[in-house]
Amino acid sequence: MKTKLTLSQKAGLLSLGLLAVILLVWQLATLPDTHAAAANVDPEYAALMGGGAAKAASSFPTPGAMAQTVWDRLSHPFYDNGPNDKGIGIQLAYSLARVLGGFALAAIVAIPLGFAIGNSRVVYQAINPYVQLLKPISPLAWMPLALYTIKDASASAIFVIFICSLWPMLINTAHGVANVRKDWLDVSRTLEVNPLRKAFRVILPAAAPTILTGMRISMGIAWLVIVAAEMLVGGTGIGYFVWNEWNNLSLTNVLFAIFMIGVVGMALDSIFGVLAKRVAYQE
């Protein structure tokens, strides 16, 4: 008897199938090729390195080794053995703190400013050239300037997050505010609603979905940029962790970090997805 599967059951099975294929290919690609390794290694180098020379050829981890690392690291996420050896939880917490700090600052600036820009054609036209000029600049290009002026590596990273989060929120807020349906504004005019009440009870809810989309884009970009920023400023954070493990030639840890960056990014995005649903309205 054939049982009918729901759409999500089918998709789930397909996903699992894909995972199995990926793991199989990974396993096959990382099988220790001892014969070839032994043949290619210079005997003198092999003598100097002991067993290490042969192993170096397959330093890309097997799925099994990877799983072991993930398990070990996730079972002790918050240990701290000095600057070069911290748990993944601590590193992610540093990165998240920077992202949230820069993001919050950007929201504090961008949302009121976006309101002003969206409400007034004059302000819009006055500010638009600056936004257009500043928007395409890679946030990392600000890093030297930030380091010079702020003179603090961690604060500079926050500044870089601030700059990259600013534009999508600013543009979306202005766009959302400028495109509030005229009917709703007319209603509030005929009801003689005062400007503050109009801003919070009419314009803000009307523009909220657009503003939230801007915030979601900003958060996505901020999480992309923090990795690069922390590779530059060093010290702590998931970006620093990736670079440090690259210097340690621990591809297992690099892969693990990549995986965690993806997980956290996905979680951040889904938080904004939930928020977006809450402010959405159907006309």
Binding site: D186, V187, P205, V279
Partner: peptide, 29 residues
Amino acid sequence: SLDRGVIFQSHALMPWLSVLENVSFAVKS
């Protein structure tokens, strides 16, 4: 002015508010 009430062709209700909230918004104004 609140002395002149307007009924719009497009009804102009605020979609994020319930029926009661839409009317209450006017009453509170």
